[in-house]
Amino acid sequence: MARYRFHATNGYECVFDAKGKEIRLPERLTRRAGEVAREVMRALDGREDWGEWHVSVHDLTGRRVLVRPFVGG
Results as ranks from 00 to 15, higher is better:
residue 65 V to Q: 14
residue 48 E to N: 14
residue 72 G to T: 01
residue 4 Y to V: 00
residue 46 G to H: 14
residue 54 H to Y: 09
residue 9 T to D: 10
residue 51 G to V: 00
residue 39 E to L: 11
residue 28 R to N: 13
residue 4 Y to I: 00
residue 28 R to I: 00
residue 46 G to R: 15
residue 32 R to K: 11
residue 65 V to M: 13
residue 8 A to D: 04
residue 3 R to T: 01
residue 17 D to I: 00
residue 72 G to C: 02
residue 20 G to D: 01
residue 19 K to S: 07
residue 27 E to M: 11
residue 53 W to Y: 05
residue 68 R to Q: 07
residue 6 F to Y: 05
residue 67 V to R: 15
residue 32 R to P: 09
residue 7 H to G: 12
residue 73 G to D: 13
residue 33 A to M: 07
residue 16 F to D: 12
residue 29 L to T: 01
residue 51 G to P: 14
residue 19 K to H: 06
residue 70 F to T: 01
residue 53 W to N: 04
residue 40 V to S: 04
residue 9 T to Q: 11
residue 11 G to W: 14
residue 56 S to N: 09
residue 42 R to N: 05
residue 19 K to M: 04
residue 58 H to S: 12
residue 11 G to Q: 05
residue 51 G to W: 08
residue 6 F to Q: 06
residue 42 R to G: 02
residue 72 G to W: 06
residue 46 G to A: 07
residue 72 G to D: 07
residue 54 H to N: 06
residue 29 L to S: 04
residue 41 M to A: 11
residue 67 V to E: 11
residue 19 K to G: 03
residue 36 V to A: 11
residue 69 P to L: 01
residue 31 R to T: 00
residue 5 R to N: 12
residue 73 G to P: 13
residue 15 V to N: 10
residue 72 G to F: 02
residue 4 Y to M: 09
residue 47 R to S: 07
residue 41 M to R: 15
residue 25 L to C: 03
residue 40 V to H: 04
residue 29 L to Y: 04
residue 63 R to W: 02
residue 42 R to Y: 04
residue 42 R to W: 09
residue 61 T to A: 12
residue 53 W to V: 01
residue 64 R to A: 03
residue 18 A to K: 14
residue 23 I to M: 14
residue 1 M to N: 07
residue 26 P to A: 09
residue 58 H to C: 10
residue 70 F to L: 06
residue 36 V to G: 13
residue 34 G to P: 15
residue 55 V to L: 14
residue 43 A to K: 15
residue 69 P to A: 02
residue 49 D to P: 15
residue 28 R to D: 10
residue 34 G to D: 05
residue 11 G to R: 07
residue 54 H to G: 03
residue 55 V to Q: 15
residue 71 V to E: 13
residue 66 L to A: 04
residue 59 D to S: 06
residue 45 D to K: 14
residue 60 L to K: 11
residue 36 V to Q: 15
residue 20 G to K: 10
residue 72 G to M: 03
residue 11 G to C: 06
residue 61 T to V: 01
residue 27 E to C: 14
residue 14 C to Y: 08
residue 29 L to N: 02
residue 32 R to E: 03
residue 31 R to I: 00
residue 28 R to P: 13
residue 50 W to H: 04
residue 26 P to G: 05
residue 16 F to C: 06
residue 58 H to A: 08
residue 44 L to E: 15
residue 6 F to G: 05
residue 29 L to R: 03
residue 8 A to F: 08
residue 65 V to H: 13
